[in-house]
Amino acid sequence: MAQRARPQQQRAAQTRRALLDATVDLLALHGVERLTTTAIVRRAHVSPGTFYRYFVDRAAILAVLRDEAVRAIEDDLMVSVVAALDIDVDAAMRSIVVTLVDAFERHRAVILAMVSQLPAGHHANVLPEIEADLHQLASLLPRRHRPDLLPERLEAVVFLTMGVLVSTCLRIALQRPPEVDRDELVDLATAMLVAGLGPGR
């Protein structure tokens, strides 16, 4: 019985993944405004009934994709922050900026779908979990490079640095004008963030 259940579970997981991947493809092609369950099932080559076996509606599949994107971005950022502890502050901050911009670009279609559904659009805090869940981790970098900071000053630096880091990297990944060089923006963001860690600021 268990052996028969395993292939069924694998097929179910594959079908669910096909629906999720089809949704990402459609978001990348047409944006969230033209996303329908009909388009998703056509793209995934399944029946409408199959879609509703896994997801209640379009909002439900978008919520799953959002959670997946947040987890993946958090994982990337965690690895980058840990690696950044052993290098100088400029290189460390640049590495983190590049990691976040890359991650946001990889999940661009899903993030843009999220942005378009928020009342404040691009001005909203699109990914509050990334700031909240990694607050402790984020404090490692200023703690390492600014051991002289008092706890309340460290808290202020971490609070602002994470907010500026996430919003700046989102702007670079999602809103960069075509004529503006990506590396130049990464360098500018790095310089701003390093200045925020500097003494007497």
Rank of each mutant, 00 (worst) to 15 (best):
M1W: 03
G121H: 02
T168C: 03
M93Q: 08
A5C: 09
E68D: 13
L26E: 03
A91G: 05
L141Y: 08
E152R: 10
A103T: 12
L26Y: 05
A5F: 12
S95I: 08
P7N: 10
M192T: 11
D148V: 03
P7S: 08
V101C: 13
L193F: 10
M192V: 14
G31H: 06
R66C: 00
H107C: 06
E155L: 00
R94G: 14
A60H: 05
V194K: 07
H135F: 15
V194E: 13
V41A: 03
D187Y: 06
V97A: 01
D86H: 12
R17W: 02
L185D: 06
A195C: 13
V158K: 00
T36Q: 06
R144G: 10
R144E: 15
R58C: 07
T38W: 01
H123I: 01
Q117F: 04
L127Q: 00
F55C: 03
L100D: 06
V158F: 01
H45A: 12
A124T: 10
L137A: 07
Y52V: 07
L174I: 10
D148Y: 00
T37W: 03
L118W: 09
E105A: 14
E184K: 09
L170P: 02
F104A: 12
A69K: 03
E179L: 04
A156V: 10
R108H: 12
P151F: 03
D90E: 07
H30Q: 14
L118M: 15
R6A: 06
R201N: 13
E129M: 05
G163E: 04
F159N: 08
A72H: 07
A189Q: 12
L35C: 02
P48F: 04
R153G: 10
M192E: 07
L154M: 09
S47A: 08
L127C: 01
L26P: 07
N125F: 08
L62P: 04
T190P: 11
V79I: 13
R106E: 14
I130S: 04
A59C: 00
R144C: 13
G196C: 13
Q117N: 13
H122R: 01
M162E: 05
T38A: 12
R201I: 15
L134Y: 10
V32K: 03
I172N: 12
V79P: 01
T36S: 15
E184D: 15
R11S: 14
L118Q: 10
D148A: 02
R16T: 07
A12R: 09
N125W: 05
T190W: 07
Q136H: 10
Q10W: 13
H122E: 02
S47F: 01
I87N: 00
T38Y: 05
P119R: 06
D25I: 03
A28R: 05
V180H: 11
D187K: 00
A92Q: 09
I73Y: 03
L29D: 14
E68Q: 06
Q10Y: 08
I61H: 05
V41S: 04
V194W: 11
V157P: 05
S95R: 15
A138Q: 10
L65V: 04
A132L: 14
A156S: 08
R201T: 15
I130D: 00
Q9P: 00
L141S: 06
Q175T: 04
R153M: 15
L150S: 01
